[in-house]
């Protein structure tokens, strides 16, 4: 699915990922953990860029269109499935079909009552859930999320993450909450200073390894 061999990546002119090799197979669920600045986001962006049109993508910052409703922001995930004309008409007046789909989806990310509010009127957590809704509505086999639930409370977060797992064959997430990572993913990749420190099945990761990751 993804095969990286000794690649280095830059972010704002600085090399933040150095000489990394990483292979992710179909059906895996992988969590990237590590302190901020370790290169997680850069690595995820690179993974996405390999086949951007086939990956459900949930970025760290929601990146919503503030003046459109939550409904339209979620609908955006499915733009490429429909014709431009249909999309344009739906922008002016939502069609019943996608409306029902998105209502169901919104309920699963607990946004039912917010669908018709403008995105910029929503709280940070709600905005993040809209972004997740958009990613889910992209309906792809692979999901890549960069801290997708960082602004959502813990109980909701677990529900949403398991929903993401159910709906996608392969998932790659960057998570700052290591407990969460161990609960949700089968495989943990520890990153520090742009290099992979460990790459193990969740069951084999020790607390010491995790602690070492976050030590200065």
């Amino acid at each position: 699915m993804f095969e990286l061999h000794n690649i280095s990546l830059k972010y704002r002119e600085q090399t933040v990922v150095k000489d990394v090799s990483l292979t992710i197979r179909e059906g895996e669920s992988v969590a990237l953990v590590g302190p901020s600045g370790a290169g997680k986001s850069t690595l995820l962006k690179h993974l996405r860029s390999v086949q951007a049109t086939k990956i459900a993508w949930c970025p760290q910052h929601a990146g919503l269109v503030p003046m459109l409703s939550a409904y339209h922001n979620i609908y955006m995930g499915g733009l490429s499935r429909r014709s431009s004309l249909y999309n344009l008409a739906n922008l002016l007046r939502p069609f019943a079909g996608p409306k029902t789909e998105i209502q169901v989806l919104a309920e699963s990310v607990e946004l039912r009552d917010e669908l018709h509010r403008r995105a910029d009127e929503l709280s940070g957590g709600q905005q993040q859930r809209v972004a997740i809704g958009r990613a889910l509505y992209q309906q792809q086999a692979i999901f890549i999320g960069d801290e997708p639930v960082s602004a959502v409370d813990a109980i909701q977060a677990d529900k949403i993450l398991s929903l993401i797992s159910q709906r996608h064959q392969t998932i790659v997430l960057a998570l700052h909450d290591t407990e969460q990572a161990l609960r949700v993913c089968q495989r943990i990749v520890g990153l520090k200073d742009g290099a992979i420190v460990f790459d193990l099945p969740s069951a084999q990761v020790t607390a010491e390894q995790l602690a070492a990751l976050y030590q200065a």
Binding site: T53, W57, L79, S80
Partner: peptide, 21 residues
């Protein structure tokens, strides 16, 4: 950002849902 988060960032649909608003 909003455009880049879509599956396809080019095209009319992306324009009407992100750039134009």
């Amino acid at each position: 950002a909003p455009r880049n988060n879509l599956l396809q960032s080019a095209g009319l649909s992306a324009f009407f849902y992100t750039t134009l608003p």
